[in-house]
């Protein structure tokens, strides 16, 4: 059996929270931003990660590329655990995994030309490459993402949001990575531009055989692009399933609530459809509910949900749900 490109096992990220009034020897409170996430990312596959703000999506992505201290393990396809590497050893793997950021303009250095920005990964990971060759490569990748190569000497503030995101994509692709981590790459863009950027990502994935970890809070975008989708809530996985199964047959009440909130561009259906409104606010991640973290807002919660945390239950080989009472949505509505 071949290894997956990347396998995350029980990844946890916690932050120490100190109050100014705390004495220096008081142990700091722990905030578990990401709590035991595991997944496998096969070569050429796209995994979508969804969840509301503050559920740990971006934290998970930052932990995977070792921008944050995390525990657990992340196994690369050659069998190395990325979390055990020194920063110097990690450098080789950084070339294999590149990130696209949420805010297209803010992620580009305003004092650098587009050419310099896109060339930065090359200068870091291919230090022996000559200046002419580097420039040729930058031009080629600019053309690949739909930018005019003769704009190589322009500055980021001279481009629109969509073009800036293309520059970000070009910078990620210039070192030919295997894994592309997209941290909400389209949420800061207009809808029409979103479609273009998603289209570009799809095209690149097909042509270059990229593996993509796609983080978003927009379900329709994720549905369009992902092979598999993972739903997070308060740093924990709620449900993970192939995209088609998750959207047609969601089994976790949280996923069902999320899906019912997606607007449908048809007033007739929109008027008659039932929205599962969740009660209450997102609990503080400092004091998560006991047992199942979702129970405080879950329409199906019973006394059982408060004590032991639910086991992962698997309805078929690839559909995992973390719930005591998984079931189809109809049952809930009816």
């Amino acid at each position: 059996m071949t290894r997956p490109l990347l396998e995350a096992r029980d990844v946890r990220v916690s932050f120490e929270i100190r109050h100014p009034s705390d004495l220096p020897w008081t142990p700091p409170a722990l905030l578990h931003a990401v709590n035991g996430i595991s997944f496998r990312l096969e070569r050429g596959q796209t995994l979508g990660i969804v969840g509301e703000s503050g559920c740990g999506k971006s934290t998970l992505a930052r932990a995977l590329i070792r921008m944050l201290p995390a525990t657990g393990s992340v196994i690369w396809e050659d069998g190395t655990d990325l979390f055990t590497l020194s920063p110097r050893q990690m450098l080789r793997y950084r070339a294999e995994m590149q990130v696209i950021f949420q805010d297209p303009l803010a992620s580009l250095d305003p004092r650098m030309t587009v050419g310099e920005i896109i060339a930065e990964p090359l200068r870091t990971h291919r230090p022996r490459m000559g200046a002419t060759e580097r420039r040729e490569k930058v031009r080629a990748v600019m053309e690949r993402v739909g930018l005019l190569p003769n704009q190589i000497n322009r500055y980021p503030h001279e481009f629109s949001g969509g073009q800036c995101q293309r520059i970000g994509i070009a910078r990620a692709l210039v070192v030919e990575p295997k894994l592309l981590i997209c941290d909400e790459p389209v949420s800061a863009l207009d809808v029409s531009i979103q479609a273009q950027v998603i289209g570009l990502l799809e095209e690149l994935r097909r042509d270059l055989g990229l593996t993509i970890l796609f983080i978003a809070h927009d379900l329709s975008v994720v549905k369009h692009l992902s092979d598999e989708v993972m739903v997070l809530y308060l740093g924990r996985m709620m449900e993970k399933a192939p995209s088609s199964a998750l959207f047609s047959d969601p089994r976790h009440p949280y996923t069902q609530a999320l899906l019912s909130a997606v607007p449908i561009p048809d007033p007739q259906i929109e008027r008659t459809k039932r929205v599962i409104a969740l009660d209450g606010e997102l609990p503080s991640p400092m004091h998560p509910p006991s047992g199942c973290v979702f129970r405080t807002r879950c329409p199906r919660a019973t006394g059982l949900c408060a004590s032991p945390p639910p086991e992962e239950c698997t309805s078929d080989a690839r559909h995992h749900t973390l719930c005591h009472f998984p079931g189809p949505a109809a049952e809930l509505i009816g």
Partner: peptide, 16 residues
Amino acid sequence: RDYIEAARAIGVPART
């Protein structure tokens, strides 16, 4: 700023 984060993600050393 995001662009510093981006540089760190690329793996650019701190001094650079």
